[in-house]
């Protein structure tokens, strides 16, 4: 506990004993303490409805905790990537990506948008409308829109959950590359054990509602990680371990 509090001071974002009860009476999150240090890639894993998204919304400041507190470093520029691409259907790709800059009144937006689109490999699609793109491409637009403000902290709520396996694994690799290149910090929600182990420096396991962090697993595999990692014994064992931890939560209900 003392270590955690010490860590809070240098954290980009931290929750202290944060609980959330919605006005409907649903307790979504129960006394959760978490601190996200610069450079971490943290995955939150747990069954659906366990409060993962609630935790992410707390971290983003979209929600205030009912009890406990949220602390964000002053200079934490953050971006949120939603479960679905969440694009404006009436605006083309370029205008969608430019939106955060326009709302913030940022100068020189066009160059930044072009750069963000190039980063996600969609430079030629800047005039396309969302409906003309595949699900994977729409998600890339969503990521470009998050990157365009040059955030330090990226909050991602099951961003690739609706995509097919191959597209998801490719986007996972691209995300890791971005994380390394841009020295990002990522808080990533998923229900996919393999994805969590493959991506993260640290995996947090959450219990069913009301959600709490019940276990924590450091993944001390070196980066860059490649597909070869997925078939190693250590990888499979870690996934098995996580799976056991989650099953333990289910039994404990």
């Amino acid at each position: 506990m003392t270590e955690r509090i010490a860590a809070v001071s240098e954290a980009l974002v931290a929750l202290r004993e944060a609980s959330v009860t919605y006005p409907t009476g649903v307790a979504a999150l129960d006394r959760t303490t978490l601190s996200v240090a610069p450079g971490e890639f943290i995955s939150l894993i747990g069954p659906s409805g366990c409060g993962k998204s609630t935790l992410l919304r707390l971290a983003a400041g979209l929600l205030e905790p009912t009890t406990g507190s949220t602390v964000r470093a002053d200079d934490t520029r953050l971006a949120f990537v939603f479960q679905s691409p969440t694009l404006m259907p009436w605006a083309n790709v370029r205008r969608n990506v430019r939106l955060p800059l326009e709302l913030g009144g940022v100068a020189n937006a066009d160059a930044k948008v072009t750069e963000a689109l190039r980063t996600v490999g969609l430079a030629e699609f800047d005039r396309a409308y969302p409906r003309e793109l595949s699900g994977g491409m729409q998600m890339r637009v969503s990521i470009a829109r998050a990157l365009v403000t040059e955030p330090r902290l990226l909050l991602m709520d099951e961003p690739f959950g609706a995509l097919d396996e191959i597209t998801r694994e490719r986007l996972d690799d691209e995300l890791l590359a971005l994380w390394a290149q841009r020295h990002l910090t990522v808080l990533f929600v998923t229900h996919n054990i393999y994805e969590a182990v493959y991506l993260s420096t640290r995996v947090l396991v959450m219990s069913p509602r009301p959600g709490r962090i019940t276990a924590e697993l450091a993944i001390d595999e070196p980066y860059p990680r490649t597909d070869a990692l997925r078939v190693t014994e250590r990888f499979v064992k870690r996934c098995q371990h996580l799976s056991d931890l989650m099953a333990g939560n289910e039994r404990g209900r």
Binding site: R57, A60, G61, L62, L78, A79, F80, F82, Q83, S84, T86, M88, L99, P100, L103, G104, T149
Partner: peptide, 10 residues
Amino acid sequence: GLLDLFRLNG
């Protein structure tokens, strides 16, 4: 989701 995005970007 878009409403959240607008809020996050002030």
